[in-house]
Write a protein that binds this DNA or RNA. Structure first.
Length: 424
RNA sequence: GGUGUGGUGGCUGAGUGGUCUAAAGCAACGGUUUGCUAAAUCGUCGUACCGCAAGGUACCGAGGGUUCGAAUCCCUCCCGCACCGCCA
């Protein structure tokens, strides 16, 4: 959420910056209209309240002395009714303004490359090279089904498309990867592991920016008012919502493994085959809550932490920086890490590392007390470290052998319990 | 799910319709003094919004209601705690 004072003071600059990400600037004019109306109401109602308070006080004083206060009572009822009316009106305008602000995206950081689509995202880093093979390559879907590691028809029977049933060594690899990644981040990168609820309240989804704008992408329960979190970012960042931290509490580093639930409506085709785009998938997520002066340094560290997972697994990847037009709703700056899947002939996004600056913190009222005892909003960041199914695809397609087995990188041998995955 | 009980500032905790502009204590911060691992003393000591400012307004779990006036009375809800029931 943007600061209404910033919009009030520099509306043209805000519109200019939002235009770079393809946002219609009329939303800014709209929120300014609401703001003007709101402030007019506040001025009026507070004047009336001030009068009411002082007259009431005088009535109290006179009654205590046993004097009559009838002259003061006249007109008071009317005044109170008028106050109630304006209070009601203000509540409506407040909500209107908040809803409007909640639907305006974050302002891109000045360093963000300008561009209108993913075509304009520059590559900023690349690790190793595409591996070469002396046999024909297969896509993970065929490979996994034939080996008996994943059963897509069973999952279709249970839940429809976009799900998977992992079996035998296929299930064990998944468990090994989760353990492997959590160990890296807790033991080498200093994160505290947390295991949060997967179902969260509506205001929690608002805090990190999924709601109100992306409701149709979420699974939710009308009755209970709870939503299935689409990423651990939601519960883990919101752990600190509505609090004022001490500056000494910063930075906070949390890592969580959770399943993630997304509707992913209307997508199909090569880029969604098999495990690539699912309604339910596992992910290890890194969340940082930091001092505003340190958030860009933290973003670089976070990106390197995510990249290190792929390097330990000996996988080729590239990292791109998102241009203004491709930036996520709440991000001020964002890097995507894409791992190479040779069988599918695709780079797959396995991590998106973002700095939200104050955007989420303002929505969830997450502040810290700085050295001058002033309450300031924290900066929040997150990135996957990493998403499981696509990593799984890259691993299996990279390690595939002619006989249908998969050779695993050294780092996984101990976690998986052997060097090679053999068909069931 | 049932019954009971409670929800007040960073913390403890008073406050039952009218200067509550929320007592007091603790903690914290600043000054003074004596001096040495501290004590005494004075002062400061919540958040947000509106306003150029002076200042004003709101907030005692949340939302409604009664009243000229609500931390205080009424209603609904949420949460904590204790016990009971059910259950992996």
């Amino acid at each position: 959420m943007l600061d209404i004072r910033l919009i009030r003071e520099k509306p043209d600059w805000v519109k200019e910056r939002l235009k770079l990400r393809g946002e219609d600037p009329s939303s800014i004019d709209h929120v300014l209209d609401i703001d003007a109306e709101r402030r007019k109401i506040i001025a009026d109602v507070e004047q009336l309240k001030s009068e009411r308070n002082s007259i009431s006080k005088e009535i109290g004083v006179r009654k205590k002395k046993g004097e009559s206060a009838d002259d003061l009572l006249s007109g008071m009822k009317e005044r109170s009714e008028r106050i109630a009316e304006l209070d009601h009106k203000q509540a409506g305008v407040d909500e209107k303004q908040r809803n409007c602000l909640l639907s305006i995206p974050n302002i891109p950081h000045p360093d963000c490359p300008e561009g209108s689509s993913e075509q304009d995202n520059p590559e900023i880093h690349r690790y190793s090279e595409k591996p070469t093979f002396d046999h024909e390559l297969r896509e993970h879907v065929d490979l996994l089904q034939e080996a008996g590691w994943v059963d897509f028809s069973a999952s279709a029977k249970l839940s429809g498309s976009g799900f998977a049933v992992f079996k035998g060594a296929g299930a064990r690899l998944q468990r090994a990867l989760l353990q492997f990644m959590l160990d890296i981040h807790t033991k080498e990168h200093g994160y505290q592991e947390v295991s949060p609820p997967f179902l969260v309240r509506e205001n929690v989804m608002q805090g990190t920016g999924q709601l109100p704008k992306f409701r149709e992408d979420m699974y939710g329960f009308e009755g209970g008012g709870l939503f299935l979190a689409p990423t651990a970012e939601v519960p883990v960042t919101n752990l600190y919502r509505e609090s004022i931290l001490a500056e000494a509490d910063l930075p906070i580093r949390n890592v969580a493994y959770t399943p993630c639930f997304r509707r992913e409506a209307g997508s199909a085709g090569k880029e969604t085959r098999g495990l690539i785009r699912m309604h339910q998938f596992d992910k290890v997520e890194l969340v940082r809550i930091v001092h505003p002066d340190k958030s860009y340094q933290a973003l670089d560290e976070l990106r390197r932490e995510a990249e290190s997972v792929l390097e330990k697994l000996e996988l080729h990847y590239r990292t791109i920086e998102l241009c203004t037009g491709d930036l996520g709703f709440g991000a001020a700056k964002c890097y995507d890490i894409e791992v190479w899947a040779p069988g599918s002939d695709l780079y797959l996004e396995v991590s998106s590392c973002s700095n939200f600056e104050e955007f989420q913190a303002r929505r969830m009222q997450l502040r810290f007390k700085d050295t001058n005892k002033k309450n300031r909003f924290c900066h929040t960041l997150n990135g996957s470290g990493t998403a499981l199914p696509r990593l799984y695809v890259a691993l299996v397609e990279t390690g595939q052998q002619l006989d249908g087995s998969v050779r695993l990188p050294k780092a996984l041998h101990e976690y998986f319990g052997s060097e090679v995955m053999r068909p069931e």
